[in-house]
Design a binder for these strands. Structure first.
Lengths: 236, 236
DNA sequence: TTTTACGCTTGATCTGAATCAATTTGACCG
DNA sequence: CGGTCAAATTGATTCAGATCAAGCGTAAAA
């Protein structure tokens, strides 16, 4: 049987995929990995390029390999709520009724591993261990969504920003990106739309946190100067 | 082999369980149903009685059979965010790391089918069809959580209340509870904590919607007088 | 280099919802 | 039936964050 070569780059070997331990793929054995490799296709997206859209029929799902994506919902009048940021290892595109519930686009340059939904579903359907792993991911996402509801519904602007910074730093650390300064690749508007604030309030709150010696604002990110105080604001 | 009778009522036959078609149990065949029946135990809770608590080690999971439950998170200083209301057919208690992420208590009188986590997990582990069903449920919950984030982060008090009323009515309809007046078994404080508002704002907004002839406030609920206008507020 | 432009910050003002403070209503109970 | 208590409504006032309106800086285009 002749192998059909799809357009685009061939799927680089999963064997040395950097995100595998964090991704759903960690649940796969050697054979499964090799099989899934056939189904996946690596793709790049430029900054701000859309990956999929709310309401659109979901034909693909994705593993994020590199970069950051924003996941959001739009109201008819244009108001936007970012429901999360996706990082390497995150799995996207599980839809409820065949349609994407959210939109996703690249924040900076992004690399993903794309799967055709149909074949991916078939692959998962005969592998309960993968299904279990996906279930863990969705359950974790739901738990985080609950936390975000508390944030949106019950916390002040200062608490929102501090919580965001602390959690963002922790997330980066978990995937191995530890450094003195915490990069913030998303815009102030993105942060505002994630926290249910305006861009002005986010900016003012950053300034206030810096004045209070909790953070230093550096180009493209922040330095958490007083982690204890930031965590206190985040917990309270 | 002698059957051991556990304390409490014996599990009534799943065969004529009213919520089965809406619950995860709809994925089960005759044999599975009979087996799960052995694992489940029916329990009642009085109004406002806690069922499980945030941080508590999750030893049980639950199918709601009758009544309404509130699911919420508390901040250390007592601020509360209700993340959802559970209705008959809903499945509760899937925890991320063995601990409940949220607290749950009965709003009015509640009947549930309780499963010991350990045996339930064992049951599910060898039945991919059930796992798939649970996955659908969690995915749907996540999608609804995203909608709720938009509500909390980006909508006005009036939009919040109107959306809540419209969606609550739809949910009741979906499980067969259709009637001219929409019952609201939860308190105004519950509604406030669900919508990220104060009790006063909820009350004022109800009054305003009544003044504007969108709803009639009746004892223990509301009548949706102008469904079109309410849905417009909910969509916008 | 200047120009344009966009993202971010800062300031002044406004406003929707919170807070504070009484009533009012309704349910339960001796 | 009145008395008690909690839930809900209503009113007066305050305030956190939104809105409106300039500026500022950095980066890419000309």
């Amino acid at each position: 049987m002749k192998k059909i070569v799809v357009a685009g780059q061939p799927c680089a070997p999963c064997a040395d995929c950097a995100v595998r331990p964090h991704a759903i793929c960690a649940a796969l054995d050697q054979d499964e990995l090799r099989e899934l490799e056939q189904l996946g296709q690596r793709l790049r997206y430029r900054p701000n390029e859309p990956v999929f859209s709310q309401e659109e029929i979901a034909t693909s799902c994705f593993n994020v390999l590199e970069g950051v994506m924003r996941l959001y919902k739009l109201l008819p009048d244009g108001r936007r709520q970012i429901v999360g940021f996706a990082l390497p290892g995150d799995f996207l595109g599980i839809a409820v009724n065949g349609r994407h519930g959210i939109s996703a686009d690249a924040v900076g340059p992004v690399k993903v591993c794309r799967f055709v939904k149909k074949s991916f579903v078939r692959f998962v359907d005969e592998r309960p261990n993968v299904l279990r792993r996906i279930n863990e991911f969705v359950t974790r996402d739901l738990d985080e969504a609950h936390d975000q509801m508390v944030l949106l519904g019950r916390r002040s602007a200062e608490e929102k920003v501090a919580t965001f910074l602390v959690k963002w730093r922790e997330r980066l650390a978990r995937i191995g990106q530890i450094s003195e300064i915490t990069p913030l690749p998303m815009s102030r508007q993105d942060i505002a739309d994630y926290l249910g604030l305006t861009i002005e309030t986010v900016s003012r709150t950053f300034t206030k946190l810096e004045r209070d010696r909790v953070i230093d604002i550096v180009h493209g990110g922040i330095r958490l100067a007083d982690a204890a105080r930031a965590e206190a604001l985040a917990a309270a």
